[in-house]
Amino acid sequence: MAEPGAALRVDGDVVPAGAPGETLLDVLRASGSFAAKQACGRGECGACTVLVGDRAVMSCTMLAALVTDEVTTAAGLGDAAADLRAAFADHAAFQCGFCTPGQVVRAEAVLRESVDRSRDEVVREMSGNLCRCTGYRQIVDAVCAVAQTRQCSREAAR
């Protein structure tokens, strides 16, 4: 039988895994990593989205003990997502900003999976992340714009 790990890797740091029943979000925030936000605590809104490996997940309904891959929050995305962050700024794709770290992480996962995305696809892929401020259009605009530039630069590199 495998044993749950005693520590997690978060944004390049090692973080204690906490008590057995703790969620990944609890562990992140207790360890001083505040990029993932608690907005619903029930996996309904996406504000706590982080990458576990390459998969975007809701950290509020994920048992920390079951996490084995590296965890990346919005604060840990680094330069890989610099274009995405700039696009969010240029398209006014956030207002209050509370859902934004989760939106950026989700968008990064969507684009890592594929940059060949139609607008409809982006809308569907992002629909698990609630935003009460923007009305979504600008978020979709930002993600589509980055999809296009990343696709162009990838093609240019070929």
């Binding site: 505040f34 962050r85 969010f88 700024a89 900003g97 934004t100 950026v104």
Partner: peptide, 22 residues
């Protein structure tokens, strides 16, 4: 001008401080 929001870097990277943070 549609200048970027002043706090765009903090808000898009998750380092903006909300009441419950830090």
């Amino acid at each position: 001008q549609s200048v970027r929001p002043l706090d765009w870097e903090e808000k898009t990277s998750g380092t903006a401080r909300y009441a419950a943070d830090e």
